[in-house]
Design a protein around this nucleic acid. Structure first.
Lengths: 207, 207
DNA sequence: ATGATAACGAGACGTACAGTATCGTAATCG
DNA sequence: CGATTACGATACTGTACGTCTCGTTATCAT
């Protein structure tokens, strides 16, 4: 709510006549969206609420985003994602990264926004066009950790790493979103161990 | 749409005075809900649409279900779930069951209803009370297959089978709901193999 | 300077739909 | 046969999306 109104900052635009769009309003809208996402969740978030929180007219929002959904997707893209941590072993990396990421689920609206976006995409496939690059970027550190695993010889080189990444986050997604479970930090180790070692009995020492 | 109006069928009710609730209307409402779920998906489904499709007044719906959501949950509970198939090996069971189940995802609104319910539960935890027993029943055959695996010696007896079940369905849930991918039947085998064998390189023959 | 242009905040408006309430009617019980 | 309750239909309230129109303000071209 600083007094300075209309800071302009569209310097580089070429043939733009008329008043330039306010970068301040843009930021205020995204900030308000994230705040409300955190406070009331996705389905209770209203565009009117965002406008009033941001001190902005509704038209200013609809001038930049065609509907509520892309706005939320863009705000969602600013939420914390996987953070690359290199501990020297694949199991260590994954456990550290998952533990860290799970903290974000308790301190941000990630846990409510994720399934809401998934639900919306099921009816509105074009949402995927906006959402997919965001999701892809968010899991890149996970893929990087797996690639280090291949380089270290921990993972067979012909492994489908994309599938492996889904295997590792899968149980968390299922429990968090579909079963509504809280995931204790103490569950991370068994989860990673099971995904890395597999469900089948290990016969190495059995003969 | 048989002509027979008001078939009653509350014979056993004790102190019930007045006109009994119509079992026919009850069924027509659930049928219409499932049909519309299939045709337009969850978010575009309206109670007015269900009422008109079922040939029923809105009040008749709200007399039986307190809101749209429990109605949809009950209709959802009638959609096909895992079907227990015993092939003699764990891998065979899982591959057959997943392949079969994936067919349902292309022929019913399961793929849209699932994430919608997940999204709703994130904001409305009491939905879990209704939803959890339904979900639990739906995955029971999966747990049964894993228990057979333990009995056969394919799985170590101290394995967390609940987690193992989440590990197996996890990649499917992630790809289907969050990434919006179609899952080819040819992907089922690699998925099951990776979950059963684990991500780590198998060192058995390596020494 | 000054006029054309376009974004600005505010908010009225149209549409859609959830959920409630009220019709007159119909079915069941005592 | 009268009390009671469900029935289908529909009017109503409230909310929120997305559009539109205000009068105003910032920027560009001349």
């Amino acid at each position: 709510m600083s007094a300075e109104a209309g800071d302009g900052l569209r310097g580089g635009e070429s043939g733009a006549a008329g008043r330039p769009r306010s970068g301040q309003a843009h930021r205020a809208i995204l900030d308000a969206t994230l705040e409300l996402l955190l406070e009331v969740g996705f389905s209770a978030l209203t565009v009117e609420g965002v406008a009033s929180r941001a001190g902005v007219g509704k038209a200013t929002i609809y001038r930049r985003w065609p509907s509520k959904l892309p706005l939320v997707v863009e705000a969602f893209g600013r939420l914390p994602a996987f953070e690359d941590i290199d501990t020297g072993t694949l199991a260590g990396d994954l456990k550290a990264m998952l533990t860290r990421y799970l903290e974000d689920f308790t301190s941000t609206p990630l846990a409510t926004v994720y399934p809401s976006l998934a639900a919306e995409r099921a009816h509105n496939p074009e949402l995927g066009l906006v959402l997919d690059p965001v999701l892809k970027g968010r899991r890149r550190p996970l893929e990087a950790a797996l690639q280090r695993g291949v380089a270290r010889g921990e993972i067979a080189p012909d492994t489908d790493l994309d599938l492996a990444a889904d295997l590792i986050v899968g149980p968390i997604a299922v429990r968090l979103f579909f079963r509504g479970m809280k995931i204790q930090p103490s569950m991370v180790d068994p989860m990673v161990d099971l995904a890395l070692g597999g469900v089948l009995r290990d016969l190495r020492g059995t003969e």
